[in-house]
C-alpha cells in the first residue's frame, strides 16, 4: 500500500474511534446534545461531561496509543528485534514503579507532577539498562528475559510501595498501575502528559534514518554516517519521555506497541522509518477501540483497558514467539 494511502486510512480510523470515544459514557447524551456540549451551548451538564470528562479521555487515548505504537516500532527497528515493545521489555512497568514511588510515598507532596517525574526516571533507567544489555549480547532472548525480570521486579516493588502506604485504599490502586485505565482522566492529565509525549514523538522521528540504516547492522549503519551514540540517546530519551508520560497518567498498558507494528508492517515496504507514523496512528486506533470496548462491555464498573490490550496482545505475543523461530519478519 502506498504510504500516503496507508497513513490516510489509519488516520481516518483513529479519527472515527476518537469520535466513538467521545460518544460513549454512562451519561446517555444524544448525538446532537453531545456535539452542542462539546462545541457551544447545550446544557451545563452536557458541556461539562463532554469537555471535562470525555474529551480529555479521548485525547489521552489517542496520544497514549500513538506513543505506544511509535515506541514499539522504533524499539523494534533499533534493536532489529521483532519482539521489542515498551511493555514486554519492562519500560512501562518501571515507569509505573517510578510514578508510584514518587507519588505514594508523598516525597513530592500529593502533587500530580510527582507522577510524570517519577515515571520518566523509571522509564529512563529501564531503557538504559536494556540497551546496555542489548549492546552486550544482542540476542532476542536476552532482551526478552531481561524484560520479564524487570517487569516482575518493578511490579512487585509497585505492589510493595502501595501496600506500605499509610493510606488504606492505596493498595486497591495496584490494578490501575499494573493494568492501566483511562477512566476519569481530566484535562490536567492531558497537559501533564501531552507535551512530554509530543517531545518523545519528535525525538523518535529524528531517529528515522538511523533505524533504517540499522537494518544492516550497527557497523554498516555507522559506515553510512549514522552517529550511533546520538541515535541511542534520541531513542532512549524519546521512548522514556513518551512511555513515561503515558504510564504516569494511564498506568501500564501493554502489547499495543507489539501488536500494531506487526499488523502494519506488511502493509509498508518494511523500512523501519516508514513504519513509525502508521504504527503511531494504528496504536491510537487500537487503544481508542479498546477504551471504547472497556466502557461498553462492562458499563457499570468499567473494565481496565490494560486488561483488554493484554487479552488481545498476550496470545499474539505467544504466536510471534512461535513464529519468530522461523525469523520471517
Amino acid at each position: 500500500m502506498r504510504p500516503l494511502a496507508l497513513n490516510a486510512l489509519l488516520g481516518l480510523l483513529a479519527l472515527a474511534l476518537f469520535l466513538a470515544s467521545l460518544a460513549v459514557g454512562p451519561a446517555e447524551l444524544g448525538p446532537s446534545e453531545s456535539v452542542r456540549g462539546l462545541l457551544a451551548g447545550g446544557s451545563e451538564a452536557a458541556a461539562v461531561i463532554m469537555r471535562e470528562i470525555r474529551l480529555p479521555r479521548a485525547i489521552l487515548g489517542l496520544a497514549i496509543g500513538f506513543t505506544l505504537g511509535i515506541s514499539g516500532a522504533v524499539l523494534q527497528g533499533f534493536l532489529r528485534n521483532p519482539l521489542a515493545e515498551p511493555g514486554i521489555i519492562g519500560v512501562s512497568a518501571m515507569a509505573a514503579f517510578g510514578a508510584v514511588a514518587a507519588f505514594y510515598t508523598g516525597l513530592a507532596g500529593s502533587t500530580l507532577y510527582a507522577l510524570p517525574a517519577g515515571a520518566l526516571i523509571g522509564a529512563l533507567l529501564a531503557v538504559l539498562l536494556l540497551l546496555a544489555l542489548a549492546a552486550r549480547s544482542g540476542s532476542t532472548l536476552t532482551l526478552i528475559l531481561a524484560g520479564v525480570a524487570l517487569s516482575s521486579l518493578s511490579g512487585a516493588l509497585t505492589s510493595l510501595v502501595l501496600n506500605l502506604s499509610p493510606n488504606p485504599f492505596a493498595s486497591y490502586e495496584i490494578i490501575f498501575w499494573l493494568l492501566g485505565s483511562l477512566k476519569d482522566r481530566s484535562i490536567e492529565h492531558v497537559w501533564l502528559a501531552l507535551p512530554l509525549m509530543a517531545g518523545g514523538w519528535l525525538l523518535i522521528a529524528l531517529s528515522a534514518r538511523a533505524i533504517d540504516a540499522l537494518s544492516l547492522g550497527e557497523e554498516a549503519a555507522a559506515s553510512l554516517g549514522i552517529h550511533m551514540a546520538r541515535t541511542r540517546l534520541l531513542i532512549v530519551v524519546g521512548v522514556a519521555l513518551g512511555v513515561g508520560a503515558a504510564t504516569a497518567v494511564a498506568g501500564t498498558i501493554g502489547f499495543v506497541g507489539l501488536v500494531v507494528p506487526h499488523l502494519i508492517r506488511p502493509l509498508t515496504n518494511r523500512l523501519p522509518s516508514r513504519l513509525l507514523l502508521p504504527a503511531g496512528l494504528g496504536g491510537a486506533a487500537l487503544l481508542l477501540a479498546a477504551d471504547v470496548a472497556a466502557r461498553v462491555v462492562l458499563p457499570a464498573g468499567e473494565l481496565n483497558v490494560g486488561v483488554l490490550t493484554a487479552l488481545i496482545g498476550a496470545p499474539f505475543f505467544l504466536w510471534l514467539v512461535v513464529r519468530s523461530r522461523r525469523e520471517v519478519f
Binding site: E44, A45, V48, I49, E52, I53, F103, Y104, G106, G109, S110, L112, A114, S165, P166, N167, F169, A170, Y172, E173, F176, D184, S186, I187, E188
Partner: peptide, 20 residues
Amino acid sequence: EEDAPSLGARVPHHPALRAF
C-alpha cells in the same frame, strides 16, 4: 485522605466537579 496520597483521593477533585 489527605494524609497519604492516593489517586482515589483525587477523584472528588476532578475539574468536572469543580466546573459547576
